[in-house]
Structure formats: structure tokens, C-alpha cells
Computed example of a mutant assay.
Amino acid sequence: MLTGSTLARRALGRELRRLREAAGMNQSVAGRVIGVSPQTIGRMEDGLPTKVSDLYINALCDAYAAVTTERTMLLTLAYEVRATRKAGGGWWRAYADAMQVGFDHYMSLEESAQRLGIWKTAVIPGLLQTAEYRRSIEWTQHPEMPPEQVEKRIEIALRRQQRLGEADFTIDAILWEAVLRDQIGGSRVMADQMQRLLEVSQSPNVSLRVVPFDCRGHLGSCVGSFVILEFSNLAATGLTTPPVVYVEEYAGDLYLERESEVSRYRNAFTEISRAALDEDTSRQLILSIAKEHSQ
């Protein structure tokens, strides 16, 4: 699996910021070194798509008094970014016209992630949805959307699910019971969706648990849905890639990367895990709800 350029860009940005701050320079001064605006330096350091040539890297390394190992690492990361971009990026680029604005960034992170920790208070996670369930959501959210675009979005959802077959990719998903009892698409769609959850829960790399209605005072009642994405080290440099917390909102999404923010969500996920049923009991509850949807 290609990690894509997103992780390399993020790592490159973190190292550039670290070296600049160690050199006591602000972004305006750094920008003058290579003839760009401070905003462009900010985009580089934030890991956003922007031109990062070897000429820029070497000039900044000179200005920051970087040692040889630091310069080599930065040049390696910059090469990885360019090589991946030249190869065309991730498979989802072909569906750019059908995706919601900004979701390609999440896709690049998900495709690179080694582990997902998911807490859902509404809607089945996309990686576990059936086509009919996904279709029902799209028609509810976007009743004016052309049918061909809806079908493209369903293709994206199903293509994402291919990662479930990768042994080195794991999911720890915890669902609020309300997610299972909602009537998205009607009883037949929900009954089929429950069967899908039962099937995927048998996979060795998928843990699926439920927080039931009768669980009192759990933190999940106060915390909205979120995903913690964790990554392996970058192959080219061995650099550790910090986790990202993704919070999906109706009016816009959040990507949290500060250690303090990630720690809060990690602690929340731990507390919610303690409230969740074990996997076997969760499957029994899902089976029971599936039967109710089938009646």
C-alpha cells in the first residue's frame, strides 16, 4: 500500500517548523530566504500541498544551520512527496468531482492509517456500511444530487472497504446503540446493515462493540462522534507520524493534531471502551436488533 504524500508532507512540515523555531526565525524571515510569502512557509509547515523543491530545502537548511543528517532527511521527505504526486496520488483522485469538499484530505489520511479507533453516536462508520445504507444517507442529505453522482459516492464507499482485507490494518469501532436502531432507509436496509456488521465483526482485524442504552453515566454521552487515526513510521526516514483525531461536523470537519487535543480524545476513547459491551455480547445485541428490523 502506498502511504501517499500526506504523511510525508506532514513530517516535512513538522521538521521545517522545528528547525526554523530552533534558529529563532519567524515565518516572514524564512519566506524571504527563498522568496515566498510567510503564508507559503505556513502551508509548508502545516503539511498542505505547495511547492517544496530541493532548492528551497537546501536554502532553508543553510539559513537554519541544519546538520547533514537533518538536511538529508528533509530532502528524502521532499522526494517522497514529489514521487507520490507524480504517480498520480491516491485512487480516490479519480472521484474528486463526486466527493464532498475537503474529504480527499481525510481519504489520504485513512488510506495511510494503520489503525482506526472509532466512536459513533449516529450513523454506521463508512468502512462498515452496505451500499443501500450509504445510498439512503446520500439521498437524505442531498435529495437534489444527480443519481450518477450518488452512485459514484457509493463506489467510493465500497472501494474504501477494500482495506478491511489488509492484515496490517485494524479497526476498533464502538457504536452507541442508537446507531443500530435508527431507521435509515427503513427496516429492510437496516436488517441487511446489521447482517453486514455481524459478518465484518468476525474479521480478525476488526473489533466491533456497542454501548447499550442501559449503560449509565458513560463519557460517550458527552462526546460526539470521532475517529483516531494512527500511523506506522515513515519507511524512508523512520520518523514517527503522530496520530490525528478527525471530528466530522455537518458544517465542516476538524482535524486535531496537538498532543493535548489527541490525548483528550484518547482518554475519552478509553473511557468509552470501558462502558462498551465485549465483542461477543455486542454481536448478540446486534443479532437481536437485526431480528427486530426483520419483523
Rank of each mutant, 00 (worst) to 15 (best):
M1I: 09
S5D: 11
L12Q: 02
G13D: 11
E15D: 11
R17T: 14
L19W: 15
M25F: 04
A30L: 07
S37E: 09
P49I: 11
P49M: 08
K51T: 15
V52Q: 10
N58G: 14
L74P: 04
L75V: 12
A83P: 03
T84Q: 15
T84H: 11
R85S: 08
K86S: 12
G89P: 03
W92I: 04
R93E: 13
A94N: 11
D97T: 10
A98P: 01
K120G: 15
I124E: 01
P125Q: 07
E132H: 04
Y133W: 03
E138Q: 11
Q141P: 00
P143G: 03
M145W: 06
P146S: 06
V150M: 04
I154F: 05
R160S: 08
L164I: 08
T170C: 14
T170P: 04
I171R: 03
I171E: 01
A178Q: 10
V179C: 06
V179D: 02
L180T: 02
I184V: 12
V189L: 00
D192V: 00
Q195I: 00
R196M: 00
L197P: 00
L198E: 00
V200P: 01
S201T: 03
Q202T: 09
S203A: 15
P204V: 09
N205F: 05
N205K: 06
P212E: 02
F213D: 14
G217R: 06
S221K: 08
C222W: 15
F226N: 02
F226E: 01
E230I: 03
F231D: 02
F231E: 02
T237D: 05
G238Q: 04
E249K: 12
E249A: 11
E259N: 14
S263Q: 12
Y265H: 12
Y265Q: 04
R266N: 15
R266A: 05
T270N: 14
S273M: 13
A275P: 05
D280K: 13
S288K: 12
K291N: 02
K291G: 00
K291W: 00
E292C: 05
S294N: 10
S294F: 01
Q295L: 10
